[in-house]
Design a protein around this nucleic acid. Sequence first.
DNA 1: TTGTAAGCGTTATCAC
DNA 2: GTGATAACGCTTACAA
Lengths: 335, 335
Amino acid sequence: MAATLRDVADRAQVSVRTVSNVVSGYEHVSDKMRQRVLRAIEELGYIPNPVARTLRTGKTGLLSLVVPEIDVPYFSQLAREVIDAAADLGFQVMIDQTGHDHERERQLLRGGGRRNLFDGMLFAPLATGDELRDVDPARSSPLILLGEHVFDRRFDHVAIDNVVAAHDATTHLLDRGRTRIAAIGAQPKERYATPLQRTEGFRKALDEHGLEPVNALQATAAHYGRADGYAATASLLRESPRPDAVFCYSDLLAMGAIRAVFDAGLRVPEDVAIIGIDDIEEGRYSRPSLSTVSLDTPFIARTAVSRLAARIEDPGLPAEEFVAPHKLLARESTG
Amino acid sequence: MAATLRDVADRAQVSVRTVSNVVSGYEHVSDKMRQRVLRAIEELGYIPNPVARTLRTGKTGLLSLVVPEIDVPYFSQLAREVIDAAADLGFQVMIDQTGHDHERERQLLRGGGRRNLFDGMLFAPLATGDELRDVDPARSSPLILLGEHVFDRRFDHVAIDNVVAAHDATTHLLDRGRTRIAAIGAQPKERYATPLQRTEGFRKALDEHGLEPVNALQATAAHYGRADGYAATASLLRESPRPDAVFCYSDLLAMGAIRAVFDAGLRVPEDVAIIGIDDIEEGRYSRPSLSTVSLDTPFIARTAVSRLAARIEDPGLPAEEFVAPHKLLARESTG
DNA sequence: TTGTAAGCGTTATCAC
DNA sequence: GTGATAACGCTTACAA
């Protein structure tokens, strides 16, 4: 059905070698030949088969992006930029979701049983424990980790300085005169890097202001969604004295938190100030608009993709760490 | 480096045929052989190369999902469900974004020069004109269209009844006693199916209530984002008399609209009622929560993926149309 | 039930 | 500069 290289060669009366040269833009082909070949390609509507090419070259032109859930705004924003950055370098992107399933994470790290289908992987788990331990950098396909600051120096790594980001957010609340500051986002059971680091930054900021963290004001959240933020806040507001500010470990938690404050008959920021982390677009239009720590997702995406491309070219590259800039954005929700 | 079928065969002292049989779960293999093979596979850490398999079978196990922008909540929600539905059927999903570029849409419809890399395509453009005209269903890879109600009967099609959905939304505003109803979402220049159909439903509802559509109250929106909704609403509110309700062609437009109303010193829904279409989660937590028309994205995703799988099996299937259910959700933004 | 060998559509290594 | 031809790793007739 579909024309092959050989069909083109037959029609143009040349060898497949020559056709291949023309198709892949090889320099040394005479003009006469090139014309003949191009005409045959045109006439047959020939399209090269990337799979066959892949089998030969070992490169598929495909990257795999692994996220917990693509419909979490932070990840869909990241995905958008990853796809664009990848396209600029000639790659397409397939997306896998881990849900919140460790076994699935582990499986995907091993290539999901389809290792050779993509040239490299961007792994952006919400929460990674020691799934990585079993992975051998030398044997697995090129891998870039996204999002954590420290966990495994054997892999390339585009990080956020979570401790500082959380510290900045908390300090902003303190600077606004808040003293009973709650936090939402610690993990109930697991000991993941991101929440641990954010908790560390949170406590550090309190400490610098001579405040003790109050256990009852530190709420856990299994996921980082609106529903979790809502539930946790509703519960925090029943404490007495109640908190006068909430630091949410994600903007989505914060969106739920804002709604919960109002449903409790209180006001943001007058009664309770709220700040998040991520800077999703939703927070710029919400009422009140959400103060947050903006993570530079374009930087993260571009850095990760270009590093992955480099590592695909040269798998022997030493593991490196890149830290994405972040920036506090004071908006209405913190007055 | 990586072990091949032949390596396994050598190690297990059997033929590649037998190994292949074991790997692909062929029935008739003696237990003794199977054990030998499995052990060799284990020892060598063998993983089948899907590319080579593909070259032979012609199936990659990859679907392509094409959307305008993955970070638009409606599309990321859809993507999430498509990826899950695809995984259930053994497919992985690659995502391409068209931006709002017609040329890119056309290019992707032709397979983006990499036709054979995926088994089939789900095409969910925000706005498609006649890019499809040039596409020959018999020659292109299996294709399912998502989102429009009518445009090309030659292709499978999972649709929304846009006319009825828009009619229902508008009628809801009318039932609440609103009479100066604005609409946001018509396209400035292009004549795309979705906006045209929603406009049709909007006018029909007005007509049934004996109202004439007021030109000044029908705002265009180039994209369907928050910024567009904000700008259009800000401008509509300067009309006099000003509208007492706004029907937005997307929830994201509506989120911008709500913010614009408040920035103008007015209240939702008291002064201006607002309704959208899509039912994104954001609208359930916004203040006020957003009345909307819920589109059944799980239905859309599951139907589209399973139809695509069926068409991949049997490309000769006649084109069919599926209509996704929708449902009006009255929330705070319409009082 | 298992082995042998012929492709799948490319690219790459030789020669010429 | 161009032509044969051998891989790439797998599936699948065809034989045995």
